[in-house]
Design a binder for these strands. Structure first.
Length: 567
RNA sequence: GGCCCUAUCGUCUAGCGGUCUAGGACGUGGCCCUUUCAAGGCCAAAACACGGGUUCGAGUCCCGUUAGGGUCACCA
């Protein structure tokens, strides 16, 4: 195969390859003109492939993308990258859109709603399998310019080449002299075409490549990478749809995306992208490569994977019942660690008022920290009203714990009272981590859950003699809800002394043998009798909430339990 | 292995040549408050990977070593 390319050859080749393509890049660029946006407006996108899985990292990248777009008066696009039909899963697009909507990340363009499905925006279509003509126009243009060519290698041939390269210890790939079809004659191409074979279209990368791909990453700073020399596949043979690389370049050009926020696993292919933008004579968007969220696996760190790590899947956060706001603020915290300072200074402001800054994002992979997430979640739930807690809990339980729905709905007013316990004061309780934690934190108030706990664990009474326990439980029966808290406490303290308990811990510690225990021990008996637990909300409030009937019922039952055990 | 990215308390990080005997938060420990728990308040332990340079001066700049991570598909 002699090298004998000239302009005419390239054009003949392009005509041969794309006989039906009549449009040019110029046509498409005119059809999708630059956006009439203010100076500095950032157009960003989330471009998932519909594989039936939404990764928490995708939510983080979308969160950042959307915030940055909106902060600058720009646009956030959802584009579906469905060029690999083999990997596609039914219902994925719906799942993606719902996840975005769930996290308050509604896109401005693309599929913005499901049921009914609505595609918004004037740079449509936003689904790659529907954009074939655009890719073909650009591919044809590249072939005409001699910057791309068809290749008919079979999988086996490619394998063979790779093995040879391994044996010779040279760089693997399709490039330079290994690129068999790089300089094939028009006749050879024609013959294969005539035989019905479908080629891939590959970029003709410079070889040897001696240049550098330089650009400033919005997160990582100035980058200086070796120029691409791989003749990467632009269009696949099976369906003539583009690979990620070509789709990225064509779509982000035509959708007028100017800020590409993506996972940093794309960094190694950035030089290819830089080259492709150059080949189609279009400006390079700004890149922002986000480090993946990682976790420890034994003693080594790795990015969280959808196969091994439940927390990689957004479904995990739904199932656990983390409020959207909690996950959002956790991610915001990972993105910009000064978020926390902002939150402290603005305790009630919506987090959308926090300005996300790309250059404040860390360059290394942060470790996923469930403890921190829980902490944030507790704080956030503590700011909710009882009504909000009730609504969120019901909403969550409807999907993940149907029995809890029944329990909470049995007496809505009562449930609201329960969620209001120690919620309205200066320091609201922070004991609910997420909605799946409600049973643990509030179960004692609901008879069914309470009964189950008693059946399973009995009463964890403190080390106090049975006779005293019975007396204390008996005294608790006379609880008068009309009595003010301080009065009640004073009366209980007096009763404690009457029974032979120390009035406080200090008194007790001075001479432990002189008492049956201290005031706290006595109160603990009451607490356990009422709740079956040693840690509960404030006893007085608990009684107020449970109500006289329930208080008496429970204390009676606890007394029976003690009596039976004493025999 | 090639290429690339990264390296400050256990974790997330602040730090952009002197103000660093390195700051904050989560977590941990202690104390206080207290009817238990949660919360809250106070206090504490806890880090610049290593080695060379540059400089009057380095956590901060450069080089190397080491260690992590990413990537090398007709997948995105």
């Amino acid at each position: 195969m002699r090298r004998k390319h000239n302009m005419t050859d390239h054009q003949a080749l392009a005509a041969l390859l794309f006989p039906d393509v009549t449009t040019t890049p110029r046509d498409w660029l005119e059809r999708y003109p630059p956006r009439p946006l203010p100076e500095g407006a950032q157009v960003t996108r989330f471009a998932p492939s519909p594989t039936g899985f939404v990764h928490i990292g995708s939510i983080m990248a979308s969160l950042v993308s959307r915030r940055v777009a909106h902060q600058t008066g720009g646009v956030f696009i959802l584009r579906i990258e469905d060029t690999d039909k083999k990997r596609e899963q039914d219902g994925s697009v719906e799942m993606i859109v719902r996840s975005l909507l769930n996290f308050d990340l509604a896109p401005d363009e693309g599929i913005i709603s499901i049921d009914p499905e609505v595609e918004a925006g004037s740079y449509a279509p936003y689904t790659q399998s529907e954009r074939g003509e655009m890719y073909w126009a650009f591919a044809k243009y590249l072939v005409e310019k001699g910057l791309a060519y068809p290749a008919f290698d079979t999988e086996a041939e490619l394998d063979q080449t790779r093995k040879l390269q391994e044996a010779q210890r040279v760089k693997p790939g399709y490039y330079g002299r290994w690129a068999r079809w790089r300089d094939a004659s028009l006749d050879d191409v024609q013959a294969r075409l005539a035989a019905g074979e479908q080629p891939v279209i590959r970029v003709r990368a410079p070889f040897p490549a001696e240049g550098r791909a330089k650009f400033v990453d919005a997160i990582k700073g100035p980058l200086d990478l070796p120029e691409n020399d791989q003749d990467a596949v632009l269009l696949k043979s099976s369906n003539r749809l583009p690979t990620y690389h070509f789709a990225h370049v064509v779509d982000d050009t035509l959708m007028r995306v100017n800020l590409v926020i993506r996972g940093d696993e794309w960094l190694p292919s950035a030089p290819l992208h830089v080259q492709l933008f150059d080949f189609i004579d279009q400006p390079l968007p700004t890149y922002a490569h986000v480090a993946p969220i990682a976790k420890m696996d034994g003693s080594s760190k790795r990015k969280i994977s959808k196969r091994k790590d439940p927390e990689a899947n957004v479904a995990y956060y739904y199932e656990q019942g983390y409020p959207v706001q909690a996950v959002t603020e956790y991610l915001l915290n990972l993105a910009n660690s000064d978020f926390y300072d902002w939150r402290k200074a603005n305790p009630t402001a919506p987090n959308s008022e926090f300005e996300v800054k790309l250059d404040r994002m860390g360059v290394a992979s942060p470790l996923f920290d469930p403890v921190k997430l829980n902490d944030i979640s507790k704080d956030i739930i503590a700011t909710y009203t009882a009504e909000q807690v009730f609504d969120y809990a019901i909403n969550w339980a409807g999907q993940y714990n149907p029995r809890l729905v029944a329990i909470l709905n049995l007496d809505r007013a009562y449930s609201l009272k329960v969620f209001n316990v120690e919620r309205t004061g200066e320091a609201p309780r922070k004991d609910i981590v997420n909605w799946s934690d409600i049973e643990r934190a509030c179960g004692l108030f609901f008879d069914d859950l309470f009964n189950e706990a008693i059946a399973a664990n009995g009463y964890p009474f403190p080390n106090v003699e049975a006779a005293a326990i019975e007396k204390i439980l008996g005294r608790g029966m006379s609880f008068d809800p009309a009595q003010p808290k301080e009065e009640w406490l004073a009366a209980m303290r007096a009763y404690a002394e009457e029974l032979g308990f120390a009035r406080d811990v200090k008194t007790f510690k001075k001479d432990p043998t002189a008492f049956k225990g201290h005031f706290g021990d006595m109160m603990m008996v009451l607490r356990v009798g009422l709740s079956g637990k040693t840690n509960t909300p404030d006893l007085y409030e608990m009684q107020q909430t449970l109500g006289v009937d329930r208080v008496q019922q429970r204390l009676k039952r606890a007394a029976e339990y003690v009596r039976e055990r004493a025999l």
